[in-house]
Amino acid sequence: MPVIEVTHLRKSYRDHVAVQDVSFSVEPGEIFGILGPNGAGKTTTVECLAGLRHHDGGQIQVLGLDPERDRDQLRQVLGIQLQESELPANIQVDEALELYSSFYRDPADWRSLRDSLGLTEKRTARFGKLSGGQKQRLSIALALVGNPRVAILDELTTGLDPAARRETWDLIEGVRERGVTIVLVTHFMPEAEHLCDRVAVIDSGRVVAVDSPAGLVTRVNAEQRLRFYPSADLDDRLLTELPQVTAVDRHGPQVLVTGTGDVLGAVTSVLARRGIVAEQLRVEQTTLDDAFIALTGQEIS
């Protein structure tokens, strides 16, 4: 049974429709990504999931609960980290964790949560003095302090430096290993590619596709490009004869091969037979970014 089931969700504000028609379901133990450009309706969707907003149409079930009708019950089992929600500047890390854990009937041990999120040294530091990454980790800790079965994390790594981002990703994988189902809202492709089992691509309030990141890529275009410098003279026809190759171009001494399927294997074996080495060989595959652009017709950020 899915943990989250959204069918034909619709939500409009006074002056515009934020969510047109969104449906997806999230399976237990999954990291499910909600991917889309700014203003696509991602945050509104999760706010409806969390019962923070009233939706105009469609159905939502989270752990078998209705987010609006069973609001109190849902709060006990759903952890949420929203964008731009801070804490008082002068509250200490431990105070915040202790306070928020007192809000739940069956909280996690906030001390071990703090330690596992690498905040032990900062336990008496005030929120206002924490770095962006530390604030974000505390935010994750607060989303998990109630021992939730589902955690919604909205734009988790926005504004973090690459090292802090990597650390946060590791943390999320750790959270999944505890058996928590995670909904990850992001507009950052590498994040979705790295973390998510499946992704719903949302554009202008509609779901454009739901698939694994790899599935989305193959769905759009399986074309690959190879670039290399041949160690000896090479006749283009050797390559254009190959069924996998669709085009061969040259940039000075550099050869650029476009093709589908196992074009890499085909090209390298031809070269090997001729005793030619492909120097500085680069393979460019379609990325989730390309897939996204193909699906939505626009750049993500």
Binding site: L52, R75, S85, L87, F103
Partner: peptide, 17 residues
Amino acid sequence: GTYREKGVLRRMSTTPV
């Protein structure tokens, strides 16, 4: 006012309290 501005109230509204 600062609690609203900084989303402290918003964060609390995601908890059971």
